[in-house]
Amino acid sequence: MAASPPRQHRRPYRFLSHTADVGLRIRGETLEALFANAARALTATMVDRRRLRGTRSRQISVEAPDLEALLVAWLNHLLYLYDTEAFLGRDFTITSLTPERLEARAVGDTYDPTRHISKTAVKAATYHHLAITRVPDGWQATVILDL
């Protein structure tokens, strides 16, 4: 049996330790992937993502003065959809991205306490220590969530 090649790709996101809250360290080969992974990380903070079905979709567009602020605006818009429609995105496709504007399609589920394991409520994505940087294999972002 042939040995499988070593897995090269990095984890799309991981949680950073922060006493009061939670930080996300997000990776993406492209900026589009970075933004999509950030959204997946947000959902994973709130619920067990694996139990989400792809039964609903939402077209989303957000604007901000710069790329970093756009990341915060994007995540906070997803929190808005959660609060107002109980919408939880599972898969995200970034259809258009400039430093000031993002358009995306989110496919996901309606939160249902009988089917989903709720984890932690997120109040907001913050600007605190917010950073998007180029790394050798793509992009990295750090964003801290207020819980």
Binding site: A64, A69, N76, L79, Y80, D83, K123, A124, Y127, D146
Partner: peptide, 15 residues
């Protein structure tokens, strides 16, 4: 959520 949104809205204004 109302308060969280007011804070987020005004952080943008304040920036």
């Amino acid at each position: 959520g109302l308060g969280h949104q007011v804070c987020d809205d005004f952080i943008k204004v304040m920036l």
